[in-house]
Each structure stands twice: as structure tokens, then as C-alpha cells.
Nucleic acid binder design. Structure first.
Lengths: 345, 345
DNA sequence: CTGTTAGCGCCTTCAG
DNA sequence: CTGAAGGCGCTAACAG
């Protein structure tokens, strides 16, 4: 049996501890409940006098408007879902941090969905509908059916470094083709002729695009490349290099579908094959993650303009929250070549 | 002027596109609205027959219960706030991924707050109250006043790798003292006598604890160490090493308050001073992040049991959501020594 | 097991 | 500018 002891600020026979509501504030301030509502809603007309009064009462009670309740009626939760496929990818933490900040600046909160497998997407989408988010940003592969679900639920979505298969969907990405063109041109100009490529996971959109971009540009120079599979992680980069160096003609230059694999490849080249970069071998990556610039690697890579990309994603999304009828738009950003010292350019 | 063209499933003069509600489903299924509610609420009694009927109607309409609305009345948002100070720290992405998964498994969504500065904490807390989260996990420094705010708002909070200053607060952490003891003992046993320490930011709890832990254990062996400041990033690790090697007696072993600085120190030792590890110098870190195991570093470090720690944090939090009166509890996990090759052990 | 009846906390016309 | 009244979508007692 609990008594009402040690109940600071206990006014009357309040039922235990009810969070103060706008009604409580109204009562204390001697105004109507709707006045309190207006006081906390920008753009509502209220006399400065009452505003003061209400604010004082609110402060006294520690009142905070209930975002959940207001969302119920305004149909705006001020929540945006962010879907990220593999957070441990070294590249995504920065993206996530930036997205969160950009959204925060505009008064919007992030509902995070960290996916490990494709199969988790549908479960995440289910939750997304239930929480009535205002929109979503997806750095994860979405099927055509899943994209249609967004449309059906009237939830605007912006893809990050992904493309829709069929119909157009708003998206921002870093131009893989341009990036690989930059790398290939420089490498070829520097005299590299025999190329190897370590690809990303088969179902990775950017992975495939980077490989194809590289192959296309090599073809432009009348060159070919041997492509081995990878999984975007350090180990598979090392494994890929082993395969490339293990049999057949040794490549002079190896293009990796992301930085992490490039780093793995560098480690393997040095520690398993005793090679010196870039004299014995050139290795290049893609992304421009932090470790790429560490003195041990000084990776030649393409740095994605994460800041601008996240800014674009957020802007595009919020535009579509306001104006659902806006047509899809694809914004593609050029990456910057970071020369590094891992490749002979 | 819009006509009602291309409105799939357009039944009657529906006002544009209203999301279907439980009422719509009830009508279509010919049952009461509360029956629909029960159908979607586990543990409510409803006849299998009606359940089927309702589920069919719901599927047809694409109905999903509105989590926002139900939270309004059940006082459970199924939302948990996760506060993280610097997501780009290489260690936190893994923590965040694990936390998200653990919570997801239990049907709880993550509201993410990525903080860059201390000053952002208060703004985040404000939002936390407004969204009526069920609880919070904080991997960020919270002042005594901020902790009191959690109590006042009746929002359970669990600290991750942080401690409260005064009063006790539920928290999980990796035992810095034990970890440093492990490192120091091994290093001393291996003959190292002259120690240097690269500390974390002044206001970092774990940073200070690790430094103090190391100093205490060194004292136990009758040894001292020179401590230089750091900022938990690669650059400051390199800078710290420069300071330590630049003047006075050269240390034989350098303990860094986290892995990232240790990696920076290794890079500086090798590339700026031409040293060979561990022959010329021993360097150790703390955390056990991914890059620590890369062949270029093979860092001697203490690996935090992130899985168990996140599991503990989530469990402790949810227990307190159910039973707010549970007393504070501190769970401290031992880290595992990863020998690596960067230190003479 | 089922339907009815009240709200949860807030916003928003609508008259004053 | 202000208060009164209705309702957002759902749950939780209640009687049947």
C-alpha cells in the first residue's frame, strides 16, 4: 500500500503522477485549453500577455506538449524513418550522423531501422506504416513491390545510393560511373594496362554500378579486366586479391568496389605477397571513408560528398512531404578523386 | 480542380485518400470497431471465426493499426530513445546496430539522437519528453540535473559506458580498471618499465577511467607514466605519440585510451619515427574495434563484449519500463585481452 | 465472446 | 484575440 509520501510538487489528490496536460496548464493559468495549445503552436495568434501567463504556468508544471497526441490530429508525426542495411559498413555511420543532424535542424526525429538481411525489410516497412512517419530515407535495397507499398501508403521515400528497378523514385547518389571513369582514366594514363576488379555483393546496386562503370571505361580504352566477387568487407578484399594474384596474369591495378575491400586488398598485398604499393601494384577504392586517409593506407579513392548528398536527400524528402505530387527526381553527385599513394596515377 | 480519377479502390465519395481506420475495417467486416481492435491486440479474446473475417477485411483495405493512436491511450509508445555522442567514433556504430536489433526483437523502435556537442543534450531531452518514449539508453554524458529530469519525467534511463556523478543510475559498462590492469600487468611482466599514456577528452568518463586505471596499476608495480592529452581520434593519437617521443625519456610502452588513438600512434611511430613494433615500442589501445585486427595494425587491446553489454542494457531498461521502482543497478563487464602484435607482452 | 460507451491529449473550426 | 465543442484512431472497462 503506497501512500503519497515524497511526492514533490504534489498539488492535490492527483492520481499518482499524471503527466501534466494542456488542460492542467490552462487551469493553473486561468485560461482555456485551446489558448495553451495556441501558445505552443507557432503561427497561432495569441496575446503576448496570455502567452507569458501560460508559459509561466507551463514551466511550473513542467508541461511539454505531447507530440504523439498532436500528431494524431495534425497528421504529422515529425518522424522520418531511416533504413540502413549494414550499419557496420564504416561508410554508413557518417551518413546516418549527417542525416540525423540535417533532420534535427528541421525539427524532425529519426526512427532508425538497421537491417541485417533483405528479409528484415518487410518487417521494418510494417512498423513504418504503423508509426505514420512523414517520410523515409532508404539506404537499403527495396524491391519494386516495396516501393509500390510506399506509394500506396502515401509515404514519400528517397533512396540513398540506390536506384529503383523499374519506375522512377526520388533518389540521391554518388555518380559511380563518373567516379570510376576518373580512376580508370588516370590509371590508364599512368601506364597501367592489366586490370583486376573486386566486386561488391551481387545484390548491391552501387557495387554493380561501380564494376560496370569501371569495365565500361576500360573498354573505352580498349582494355579488359578480370572481375572477382567480394562482400564489401575487409576479408573479402583480401580474399579477392589473393584470387587475382594467385593465378593467371597478374594485374597491375586493382579496382575495388569500396574502400574497405581496398584496404583488405592492400593488407593482403603487403603482408601476404610482400608487395610495395604503388610500385608493384596499384589499388584503388571507392567511398572515401576515414581509414582510407590513414598513413598506413593513403588509399587512392573517390570520396563521396556525404554532406551534400545527405542535405539533398533531406531536402528532397521534406519537399515531398509538403507536396506529395512532386515528380520523382534523381540527383547524382560527382565524387572527388583522392590521389593517395596506393595507386600509380 | 481534381476529380476522383485514378483512385484505385475508391469506394464512395471518400475524402481523397484517408488511411483506413479500424472503423472502416469493422464496417467492411460487419463487426464492431472494438472487435477489430481486439483482433490486433495479442491476448484479447476473440472468436477464431471473427478473427478470420476481420483479417480478411483488413488485408483488403490495407489496414495497419495506428501505433501513435494506441500509444496515446496505452501510455506505451514502444519507442526508446538512444542517445549517442559521437557516432563517427568507430566504436559506436556497432553498439547502435546491436542496440537497435536487440530492441527490435522485442517490438520496440529506436528514436535516434546523435549528439555532436554537450549543448545538444538538452534539446534532445526536450524532444524525448515530447515523444513520450518508454525509456532511454544514453551513451552520452549526462549531468546530474539531466539525470534528475529523467526521474522527474518518469522515463527510465540506462547509461552505456557512463556513470552518474552523484546518485546511482542503472548502467552497463566495460570494466576499464580490470582491462587496464590486464594490459599493465602483461606489459610490466614483459619487462616494460617506462610508460606513456595518451588520454581521452577531459570530459570523457571512460577516457578518464582508463587513464586512472592504468596509472593505479602502474603504481601498484611501483611505476609511473607520463600522460598526454588526446581526443579519441586518429590525429590526436599521432600527436600524442609525437609529444611522448619528442622530449624527455622515451617511453617503452604507450597506453592509449581508445583504439583509434592507438592506431594513430602506431601510424606516427612507423611513418614519422621509423619505429618497428613491438621491438622499438609497445602500443596498446582499448575497445577492440574492427580496424584493430587489420594486418597493418594487429593492435594489442581490450575488446569490449558489445553483444553482452547491449543485451544487458536493453534488458535492464525494459525491466524498468515494466517496474519503475526497481533499484539502480550497475553491470560491469570484463573485456577480453586481444594480444595482437603491437605490444611486447 | 461481443458491442457500447468513454475517454487518451491535443488541434481546429466556429461563434463570440 | 478567445473559449466552446467536436473529433483524430484507438483501447478499456462495462454490460449483455
Amino acid at each position: 500500500m503506497k501512500t503519497i509520501q515524497s511526492d514533490p510538487g504534489g498539488s492535490d489528490a492527483e492520481p499518482a503522477h499524471r503527466r501534466p496536460t494542456s488542460y492542467d496548464v490552462a487551469q493553473l493559468a486561468g485560461v482555456s485549453q485551446s489558448a495553451v495549445s495556441r501558445c505552443f503552436r507557432p503561427g497561432s495568434s495569441i496575446s503576448p500577455e496570455k502567452r507569458k501567463l501560460i508559459q509561466k504556468a507551463a514551466a511550473k508544471l513542467g508541461y511539454q506538449p505531447n507530440a504523439i497526441a498532436s500528431g494524431l490530429i495534425t497528421k504529422r508525426s515529425n518522424l522520418v524513418a531511416v533504413l540502413i542495411s549494414n550499419l557496420t559498413n564504416l561508410y554508413y555511420p557518417e551518413v546516418l550522423a549527417q542525416l540525423t543532424h540535417r533532420l534535427d535542424e528541421r525539427g524532425i526525429r529519426v526512427l532508425l531501422f538497421a537491417l541485417r538481411t533483405e528479409s528484415e525489410v518487410d518487417a521494418a516497412l510494417d512498423q513504418i506504416w504503423r508509426y505514420r512517419v512523414d517520410g523515409a530515407i532508404a539506404a537499403a535495397r527495396l524491391s519494386a513491390a516495396q516501393l509500390r507499398a510506399f506509394e500506396r501508403h502515401r509515404v514519400p521515400v528517397v533512396l540513398y545510393n540506390r536506384f529503383a528497378e523499374g519506375e522512377p523514385v526520388p533518389s540521391v547518389c554518388c555518380d559511380s560511373l563518373a567516379g570510376e571513369r576518373l580512376l580508370v582514366d588516370r590509371l590508364v594514363n599512368a601506364g597501367n594496362r592489366r586490370f583486376g576488379i573486386i566486386a561488391g555483393p551481387q545484390d548491391s546496386f552501387v557495387g554493380n554500378q561501380r564494376v560496370e562503370g569501371a569495365l565500361a571505361r576500360l573498354a573505352h580504352h580498349g582494355l579488359e579486366a578480370r572481375v572477382v566477387p567480394g562482400a564489401f568487407d575487409h576479408d573479402s578484399g583480401a580474399a579477392g586479391l589473393r584470387t587475382l594474384l594467385g593465378e593467371g596474369v597478374r594485374p597491375e591495378a586493382v579496382l575495388c568496389a569500396n574502400d574497405l575491400m581496398a584496404i583488405g586488398a592492400i593488407d593482403a598485398a603487403r603482408h601476404e605477397f610482400g608487395l610495395t604499393l604503388p610500385d608493384d601494384l596499384s589499388i584503388a577504392g571507392f567511398d572515401g571513408v576515414g581509414p582510407a586517409t590513414w598513413p598506413s593506407y593513403r588509399l587512392t579513392t573517390i570520396r563521396q560528398p556525404v554532406r551534400r548528398m545527405t542535405e539533398a536527400a533531406v531536402t528532397m524528402l521534406l519537399e515531398r512531404v509538403e507536396q506529395p505530387q512532386l515528380p520523382p527526381e534523381v540527383r547524382s553527385f560527382a565524387g572527388a578523386l583522392i590521389e593517395g599513394t596506393s595507386a600509380r596515377l
